[in-house]
Design a protein around this nucleic acid. Sequence first.
DNA 1: CGTTTTGCTA
Length: 881
Amino acid sequence: MLSMSETSLTSLWVYPFAYNSREKQLKDDHFQALVKNPFSRTHIFSARGTDFSSSFTSKAGHLLVNRSRNNQNIDYNVEILKFCEVGNLQKAMELLFQREKMGLDVRSYCSVLQLCAEHKSLDDGRKVHSIINRNGIEIGGVLGSKLVFMYVSCGDLIEGKRVFDKIENEKVFLWNLLMNEYAKIGNFKDSVHMYYRMLELGIEVNSYTFSCVLKCFAASGNVVEGEKVHAYMLKLGFGSYTTVVNSLITFYFKCGRIESGQKLFDEMRVRDVISWNSMISGYLASGLAERGIKVFTEMLILGVRVDLATVVSVLAACANIRNIWLSRAIHVYAVKAGFDMKMSFSNTLLDLYSKCGDMDGAVCVFENMEEKNIVSWTSMIAGYAREGLFHEAIELYREMRKKGINPDVFTVTSILHACACSGSLENGMEVHEYIIEKSMVSNLAVSNALMDMYAKCGNMENAESVFSQMTAKDIVSWNTMIGGYSKNCLANEALNLFTTMQLHARPDDVTVTCILPACASLAALDRGREIHGCILRNGLCSDRFVLNALVDMYVKCGALVIAKLLFDKIALKDLVSWTIMIAGYGMHGFGNEAIATFKEMRQAGIEPDEVSFISILYACSHSGLLNEGWKFFNIMRNEFYIEPNLEHYACMVDLLARAGRLSMAYKFIKSMPLEPDATIWGALLCGCRIYHDVNLAEKVAEHVFELAPENTRYYVLLANIYSEAEKWEEVKKLREKIGKRGLKKNPGCSWIEIKGKVYIFVSGDSAHPQAKNIRLLLRDLRKKMKEQGHSSKQKYALINADEMEKELALCGHSEKLAMAFGILNLPAGQTIRVTKNLRVCGDCHEMAKSISKVLERDIVLRDSNRFHHFKDGYCSCRGYW
DNA sequence: CGTTTTGCTA
């Protein structure tokens, strides 16, 4: 824009009477170009008002040389420049094509390239490039720079870099330009590479270079290299450049070096609004919203100018700590400052409402927004997902796509979370397709969310496929996969991946809380101990989730004493800690200790929930504490107003049935306000077996078979009841029934861990290298049992007679094999710990008792129901199994 | 000649 004096002077000089016709003149492109043309005296005044003579002589002089050589040409160059000046790319291109053979001035090409860059017209730019090549014009110096600039501006970074590499370049500008472009597309590696190359070539770097390279190291979290840049920057005297220090502050915050960022900020002599905003958003992103707000307050006290970005960050900080009061104040402030009409402000407000659980408020903001962007939609979707309204989240995502809005990385991760939590595999797979289409898989957060979605939907194959295709994995990726395997009952896969992980990354608190349940489910005590060591080495033992998982692992691996020692050491025991310990005592048969722990918990001021009541009720039933169980059932309902669910009822039926109150249990089921399921009838069926009540068993079995026709466990149970009553005819009938249905018995299997390795045995296993020794040992033991008056209980037979014979011939059941293997391979005196996938068989139970006495070996056997500690011929279950 | 940077909500 011309200043007032210049305008008047200009106009007067060229057209003394032109004042009135000025508007008309401006409409005329051609004329306007003339006014600005380097040859007109006007140009000298308008563009370079100060130095009349030098500008005139240099420019005109240059062109005058051309004029003398080729009179025609001068006009073409001038004309092209004219069109460039007014921004008429089309005309300039036409002229360029027409006159390319005339040996046009390099400047003309430069001007057109500049215009192509401004218009972001890659097509035209390429055409200019080919004209240049066609006419054998040497690409270098200014022309080279312009070509690179054009390509980069038009988004063709690859071609830009190609031209750049061909030309001599010590100009820092182009280096910075390319570096920034690489950084913009997330290619930090190449950006940083250029920085190192600059240093090698001795190119003088400037503040732009430092800002860019710091951004790269911030993104990749490379503290070491970033600090080197920091030192070099100070050496070159950029320590007082506000933009560079701003970048440095952001870098330190992104690397988690908060104190360094704060220190830099404190020592800054000149701070601008960006310095302040960087601090606020730095704290916000580090999860320290309060400190961000504190920076904002300081800003207000010092009277620093606040801008939209400040308000947006502070409001987001308020949202994160759910500070409604401060949010309102800032809202009012924003309205006064006129920020409230901005989209980014509305987006933050919307997110604030949704984070505070006010989805109606969020919807209100959302619907009243004149313009919405991807952030608005994503915030809404994430809000619905956070509130557990997964269906709404998915619906809104659909609506958004219908509107033609392209989900970005944030949207995709939010919707995947909604799909994961609602188990909507189909929707999740649709999102996966979109992700592939937009090649978003390279994004870590997206891949992690995808894996989580597949894992939560139970599809570990697809999760594994995403995982294996990831080029870079972070701790979240590993944790998601390990946790996925763990939760999908693939404990061995979880453990194997954990081993692999340790070669690549350092486990964190989440990793160990994911892997410990896998050890627990396998009862892999040695692996669990290893992980305990890993926890100690990595300083993770102050995390309450880790401690709870650790206690749970020791409980489920049968090491109750260690579990209790650790439990006592937990300084802040939460409801979960207490529940784990109560359940632990329960499954090990220490009902009274469980009750004592429950009381302690209440004394500690922790209120039990429905889960802790399940634990205590099971503890009572495992120890046959009928009256205490009833008491807790009543306390739960009358004192804590917790409505019993199916699981609570199952506990009670179990309790009654084990205590021999079979008809009472039957009446109890009949009086339930909930529809009983197979587990509940199954518990009673179990009781029928213990107390040999064939008549009731048949009645109960009808219910069970109706509710769970596919579960072989119950057919086996009934068959056992028949065979124990020597009703062989009925056993046969049942066997035929099962055969007709094509059902297969869930094979019993047991395993034992020796020196960290798990050995698995299935019923009648003879393939094992030590099978012969095991057989001999068992035969020997059987003999000793008989001498002591134990009779072999042929009653513990199974449905299939052939199988039974085979098992007897080989001395049988998987738990016997595993126990024998333990005796043969573990040093004397060491407890034998065996785990079985089904309930322990009665004969094996007897044999274990005998082994514990005859061989003086302690045995801890975990079956699908509880623990059995065998010692001196007794079992901790005292018959309650 | 000038062209490029730093912060901003999910």
